[in-house]
Design a protein around this nucleic acid. Structure first.
Length: 596
RNA sequence: GGUUCCGUAGCUCAGUUGGAUAGAGCAACAGCCUUCUAAGCUGUGGGUCGCGCGUUCGAAUCGCGCCGGGAUCACCA
C-alpha cells in the first residue's frame, strides 16, 4: 500500500536531511481533509525536535524529498505544520485497473490455521426472540463475515439455553393450565406459545407473592416461599434426575421453541455451524467444578453449596453449584467453554453477549484461570450495548418488548408500501416483488442497527418507522440497483468495458478521483473493522462510498460521454463501486437487489 | 454505596485513536426530472462537543474533580 511507502520514504528523508533514525510508527500520516488539496497529509509538528527548523521549513524539505524520490507524488503543499501530498492520477488509475475485476479485492488471505469460535444469538427456550436478540444476531453474523474477510477461519456457534429454572417455569405453567395446547392446535408459532406460558407463570407467581405479603411475610420470604416457585425448583431437580415425564415434556416444548427459532433465523438470514445446548454442557461444568473442589481451588459451604472465592482478585464470591446439587448459568458456561475448546482448539473464543453480562465474563475468566484452563485468557467478550426505547429499556411486564417476528413483518410491510407509492413494483412479478420487499425491509432494519458502534447503547422508537432515505440501507441498495441498470444498458449498447485498456495518462476529474479514492479505502476498512470487531465501520464506509458515487452519477455522464476512453473509464469505476457496495453489504449480511 | 460504560445540532448517529474552520442523515426552508432509476442531487439555517481545572505547539479525543444518565454487584440467564 502506498501509505507504507510514504512512511518509509519519510523515514528516509529524516535520515538524509537531519541524520536521524525514527521508528516509522511515530510519523503521523492521515488522509487529507476534504477542503484541502492533497491525498495524504504528514503532520510534521512531532518532527520539529529532529529538524530543529520551523514547521513550514520542515514540511517543505520533506515534501521536496518525497517528490524527488517517489514517482507517485505529483505535487505537495504546506499549510502550517501540515504537509499535503498530491498523488498523480496515474497512481489512482493503475490501482483501479489492477483491482476493479478482482473478486477478492479487499479481502485477506488465510493467516491463522486455528479457527475463531464465535458465539452469538444464544436464546432461551422460554420466550421468542426480540429486538435485543436481533442486534445480537446481526452483529454476530456480520462479525463472522468480517473476520473471514480478514483471513480467519470462523466457526459460528449458537448456545441454546434449554435448561434451568426459567424453562421449568414455563413447563410448570403449561402442566397446570396448558390444556394440551400445541402450536398446531392453536396456530401459534411454537416459541410464542411457550412465551405465553412463561408470562402466565410470572403473573400467577406475582399474585402468590402479593397474597403472602398480605399475610405478613416480607417480600423476600414471599418470593422464596411461594408454592409456584417451590414447585418449579422441584421440577428442576426432577429434570436433573432425568425423570421420564419431565424430560418428555421438556423435549416436546423445546421442540416447539426450536421450530419457531429456525423460522426467525431463516427470515433474518443468519446461520450457525454448530449448535450447543446447555443441557449437553452443564454436566461437564459440574465435573470441572468438582475437580476444582478436590484440588482446593474452590470451596464448599456448610449447606453443601460450592463457591469460587474471588475476593482477592477484586471480585466477590460466586456460586457454582447449589446446595441441592443443581447447576447455575456459570456452571454450564464453564462446561461450554471446555467443550468448545476440546472441539476446535480455537485461537480465540468470541462471545457476542450484551454488556449487562460484563461481570459474568470477568468472573468466568477468573474461574477458568482458577481451574487451570489457559484458554480462558483467549476468551473475548464482545460486549454490545442495549437497544433502548424512548421510555427506557424493554420490559416484558410492561408489554414494551419489540418482538423480532413482528418487527420484520412491519419492515416488509413498510417496504412494500413505499415501493408501491413510488410505482416501482409495477413491472415485477408477484414473487420478484415479494423478494424485493423483503430485501429492502431487511436492508433497512439491518443497516439501522449495524451502523451504530456495537459498544454503544442505541435508541429505537417503535412509533416512527425506520427511514428509507438518507443514511439508510435502502439508499445504498438503490445506488447499487442504479449501477446495475447502467451496466446493463452499457452491455446492451455494446460497450466492451470489461476488457478495455485505458491509458493511465488521462487526467481525472475531481469526482472521478474522489470515487476511486473511496474504493481504495475498502481494504483498510475491512482490516479496521476486523481489528475493532465493528460492523459499524463497514456500514459507515459503504454509506460514504454510495454518497460519493451518487454525486459522480449526478454530475457526470457515463453512457452519454463523448470521449470513448472516458466513457469506458467511468463504466469501470461504476462497476467497481457496484462490486464494492455488494461486498460491503455482504459483510453486513445485507443483500442488494439488481433493480428497485 | 462499590465497579463500570456513556454524555457531540431539535432527533438519530459519525468523528481516521492528540491535529487544520467538529461532520452526516432525519426534521424545516429553497432549488434540480423532454437526458444513464428523484429511495437521488444542490443549497440555507441549526453547536459553550455536559461543566471546570490540568497535560502541550494543539484536546470532542488524554488525566483529575464535579453534574446527569445507563448497566452490574442473584442460589435469574
Amino acid at each position: 500500500m502506498i501509505e507504507a511507502k510514504i512512511l518509509e520514504q519519510t523515514g528516509e528523508a529524516l535520515r538524509k536531511l537531519y541524520g536521524h533514525e525514527l521508528a516509522p510508527g511515530s510519523i503521523g500520516l492521515e488522509r487529507t481533509k476534504k477542503e484541502i488539496t492533497g491525498d495524504f497529509t504528514i503532520v510534521v509538528f512531532s518532527l520539529l525536535k529532529i529538524s530543529r527548523k520551523s514547521p513550514e521549513a520542515t514540511a517543505t524539505e520533506i515534501g521536496t524529498f518525497l517528490q524527488q524520490n517517489m514517482p507517485e507524488i505529483a505535487d505537495f503543499n504546506v499549510i502550517k505544520g501540515f504537509l499535503n501530498l498530491v498523488l498523480n492520477d496515474q497512481f489512482w488509475l493503475k490501482f483501479m485497473m489492477k483491482n476493479a475485476f478482482q473478486p477478492d479485492f479487499g479481502f485477506y488471505k488465510t493467516r491463522q490455521e486455528r479457527p475463531v469460535v464465535l458465539e452469538y444469538s444464544s436464546p432461551n427456550t422460554n420466550k421468542p426472540l426480540h429486538l435485543g436478540h436481533i442486534r445480537n444476531n446481526l452483529l454476530g453474523y456480520s462479525l463472522a463475515a468480517i473476520l473471514k474477510a480478514n483471513g480467519h477461519k470462523v466457526i459460528k456457534v449458537n448456545l441454546v439455553n434449554d435448561r434451568g429454572i426459567h424453562i421449568c417455569k414455563s413447563m410448570l405453567a403449561y402442566m397446570k393450565w396448558g390444556n394440551h395446547e400445541t402450536p398446531v392446535s392453536t396456530g401459534i408459532k411454537g416459541d410464542h406459545l411457550i412465551g405465553k406460558y412463561y408470562v402466565l407463570f410470572d403473573k400467577k407467581y406475582k399474585s402468590e407473592i402479593h397474597g403472602l405479603i398480605e399475610k405478613g411475610l416480607t417480600e423476600e420470604e414471599a418470593e422464596r416461599q411461594a408454592p409456584l416457585i417451590m414447585e418449579a425448583q422441584e421440577l428442576l431437580q426432577k429434570w436433573e434426575a432425568k425423570d421420564h415425564e419431565t424430560i418428555a415434556l421438556w423435549k416436546q416444548m423445546n421442540g416447539w421453541a426450536y421450530e419457531g427459532f429456525d423460522l426467525t433465523y431463516q427470515r433474518l438470514g443468519v446461520d450457525f455451524d454448530h449448535i450447543y445446548y446447555e443441557s449437553e454442557t452443564y454436566l461437564l461444568g459440574k465435573k470441572l467444578v468438582m475437580e476444582g473442589l478436590e484440588n482446593g481451588t474452590l470451596t464448599k459451604k456448610e449447606d453443601g453449596s460450592i463457591w469460587a472465592d474471588l475476593k482477592n482478585e477484586g471480585l466477590d464470591e460466586k456460586l457454582l453449584l447449589r446446595a441441592d446439587g443443581t447447576s447455575v448459568y456459570m456452571t454450564q458456561d464453564i462446561g461450554t467453554a471446555q467443550l468448545r475448546y476440546d472441539d476446535y482448539h480455537p485461537s480465540s473464543m468470541i462471545y457476542v453477549v450484551g454488556n449487562e453480562q460484563n461481570y459474568h465474563f470477568d468472573v468466568l475468566k477468573k474461574v477458568l484461570a482458577r481451574l487451570g484452563k489457559e484458554y480462558g485468557s483467549h476468551i473475548n467478550h464482545l460486549s454490545y450495548g442495549m437497544v433502548e426505547l424512548p421510555q427506557g429499556r424493554m420490559k416484558s411486564r410492561e408489554g414494551t418488548v419489540v418482538d423480532a417476528d413482528d418487527l420484520m413483518d412491519e419492515m416488509f410491510r413498510t417496504a412494500e408500501e413505499t415501493t408501491r407509492e413510488l410505482g416501482k413494483a409495477n413491472e415485477l412479478s408477484t414473487s420478484d416483488a415479494g423478494n424485493l420487499f423483503k430485501t429492502i425491509g431487511l436492508g433497512a432494519l439491518k443497516y439501522f442497527i449495524l451502523k451504530v458502534d456495537p459498544k454503544k447503547n442505541m435508541m429505537f422508537d417503535p412509533g416512527e418507522s425506520i427511514d428509507f432515505n438518507g443514511n439508510t440501507g435502502p439508499f445504498i441498495q438503490y445506488t447499487y440497483a442504479r449501477i446495475q441498470s447502467l451496466l446493463a444498458k452499457a452491455d446492451a449498447a455494446g460497450f466492451l468495458w470489461k476488457d478495455a485498456k485505458i491509458s493511465t495518462h488521462i487526467a481525472l476529474l475531481p469526482l472521478e478521483k474522489e470515487t476511486i479514492k473511496r474504493l481504495y479505502q475498502f481494504q483498510e476498512t475491512v482490516a479496521q473493522a476486523g481489528e475493532e470487531v465493528s460492523p459499524a465501520i463497514v456500514a459507515n464506509y459503504v454509506y460514504d462510498l454510495a454518497k460519493v458515487f451518487n454525486q459522480f452519477y449526478q454530475e457526470l455522464p457515463v453512457l452519454k460521454e463523448e470521449e470513448n476512453e472516458k466513457l469506458l473509464l467511468r463504466l469501470m469505476i461504476t462497476y467497481f463501486v457496484g462490486e464494492t457496495i455488494r461486498k460491503s453489504m455482504a459483510l453486513l449480511g445485507i443483500q442488494v437487489p439488481a433493480r428497485m
